[in-house]
Amino acid sequence: MLSSATNSRRRPRGEAMRIISNDADVREGLQALLALDPRLAPVAEEAGPLPLRLIEPGFAGLAHIVVSQSVSRASAEAIWRRICARSGPPTAEAYAALEPEAWRDFGLSTAKADTLSRLALAVAAGHFDLAGLGERKPDEALSSLTAIKGIGPWTAEVYLMFCCGHADVFPSGDVALQAAVAMAFDRPERPQAKALAAEALLWSPWRSVAARLFWALYAARLRRDALPFG
């Protein structure tokens, strides 16, 4: 269930770590971004209020993001509804206990089915603490997530942004995000992931808010939600 705030997040120790927990954090980040990069002022004016859209960390949140990889929003939400129809948003234990061919009924691809099964077994066995990733530095958390076969950088970055609340993550491989940056700066072509990741360093330590800003611009221009899931 998506929510506008999550009280269970704890702010990790250390000045370098920032956690986005509520709309006030997003507003703080936006003001910092406008000071860092004045080019963003007209972008913010056009984009309007920035979405928070946090979801509880854990297996269900990451599973939802995995389902959303490389498919349309409508397809992803249809698959997710079928998964949740079993008994609500799944726990790792519940998903691991499903019959072996359940993924076919859900409409999952073989690759995604393998990823979710692998993830569910690891979490259920206590080998992987998804909620605890919010306590770790983004680069460490990303390395842990992408070590799981089937979890790529985009999936890991989106999980850290929307489930753990990390403030300094920028999923530069997101096509809508690339398109929005091109729109914002009147570029004829969208930047590729590597170039966009380098450009986004300017917006640290609030890159997650910068991503929200560009997604909001995309939504304002094209009249459709650009956030990765939900």
Rank of each mutant, 00 (worst) to 15 (best):
L108I: 09
Y95S: 11
A120F: 05
A125D: 14
L98P: 01
G88E: 06
E101G: 11
A125E: 12
L108D: 04
A122C: 02
A113M: 04
A125P: 00
G132C: 02
P100M: 13
L108A: 07
A120T: 08
L133W: 09
G126L: 02
D114C: 04
L121R: 15
S87T: 10
D105K: 12
L98W: 13
A102M: 08
A94G: 14
P89E: 13
W103K: 01
T91G: 13
D114S: 14
F128E: 03
A92L: 11
L116K: 08
A125S: 12
R104F: 03
L108N: 05
A102E: 10
R118M: 04
L133K: 08
R104T: 09
S109H: 02
T115C: 15
P100A: 12
K112Q: 04
A102W: 09
A122R: 15
F128M: 09
S117F: 00
A92G: 12
L121C: 08
F128P: 00
R118W: 00
P90S: 09
G107P: 01
Y95R: 09
P89I: 04
K112A: 09
F128L: 15
W103P: 00
D129C: 03
G134M: 02
L121W: 01
A113P: 00
L108G: 05
T115N: 07
V123E: 07
